[in-house]
């Protein structure tokens, strides 16, 4: 099962090797991030393809000691219900206010797309599943870094519980703020990629993405989407509109 899943992305990378050689100019396959003719996005894809070609798939990001835990600023959206915040989502921001007031008892994680059993999970459901706790470094694109302990359910376990199909290529994350993002299957199935509900031994604070945020430890901080409400398993690359990194003018892959 594992081998088959991993062979799928690898095949796309071998296909992508030709593109890398040609400075990934085309990038026109639906399984590649679109460039829209933007030279910067072509450079991003060159980095992505090169990393996937040369770097081992299963390497773990460094994990630290409890004593290494540092102060952590909460930036970007710190409360999705606050309509004054830059990335307020008019469609879902209001709902967050109600969920926050009820300490997320009514919150549900929706999983849909290319899965045999689309469904919803309560916070209690997720906490009953297998859990992983890791002390890792959050590296922000701005240039700062912080170390914190994250506790959550491996994304892989949630995807498997929903019967993820083997031709899945990307996993998308939709937030209660205006952010949406996605990762490929190598990052999605990586053991350190977790849906975190705990931070430093407590429930995830609001500013850090309560009740559930993603942790993608081999990419920069903004891939670790906060305030998750929906996960979509996709066969093609969706650019996720203005809320996605490419639509907002940013690199999609930020392993760097």
């Amino acid at each position: 099962m594992t081998d088959k899943r991993i062979s799928i992305p690898r095949r796309t990378f071998i296909r992508g090797m030709g593109a890398s050689a040609g400075v990934a100019v085309a990038g026109c396959s639906k399984t590649d991030p679109p460039t829209y003719g933007n030279l910067l996005r072509m450079g991003d894809n060159l980095t992505y393809k090169t990393h996937r070609l040369l770097l081992p798939e299963h390497s773990l990001a460094r994990e630290y000691d409890y004593s290494d835990i540092s102060s952590v600023p909460a930036i970007g959206t710190t409360n999705p219900a606050d309509s004054n915040q830059l990335l307020f989502n008019p469609e879902h921001g209001q709902a967050y206010e109600h969920l926050l007031a009820g300490t997320f008892a009514d919150w549900r994680l929706t999983v849909e797309g290319n899965v045999a059993k689309p469904g919803t999970f309560t916070l209690a459901d997720l906490k009953r599943m297998t859990s992983r706790t890791q002390i890792t470094r959050h590296t922000c694109e701005e240039g700062w870094s912080a170390i914190a302990q994250w506790t959550g359910v491996p994304l892989r376990a949630v995807l498997e519980a929903c019967g993820m199909q083997q031709d899945a290529k990307f996993v998308e994350f939709h937030s209660y703020d205006a952010i949406a993002d996605s990762v490929d299957m190598i990052d999605a199935l990586h053991p350190q990629t977790i849906l975190a509900y705990g931070m430093n031994g407590r429930d995830l604070p609001t500013g850090h993405g309560a009740p559930l945020r993603l942790r993608v430890e081999r990419q920069l901080g903004y891939k670790s989407v906060k305030f998750i409400r929906k996960i979509v398993v996709a066969n093609d690359f969706g650019d996720l509109g203005k809320g996605g990194p490419i639509g907002a003018g940013w690199a999609w892959y930020v392993g760097m």
């Binding site: 072509m42 450079g43 991003d44 102060s71 952590v72 909460a74 930036i75 710190t78 694109e141 940013w250």
Partner: peptide, 26 residues
């Protein structure tokens, strides 16, 4: 260690600056 929310907007042109930096690095 502490946590605090940043309540102000910052100057940030990293969307193009980072990608341009890496393109030039290549």
């Amino acid at each position: 260690p502490v946590s605090a929310n940043r309540n102000y907007e910052i100057f940030n042109q990293n969307g193009w600056a980072r990608s341009l930096h890496f393109l030039a690095a290549w």
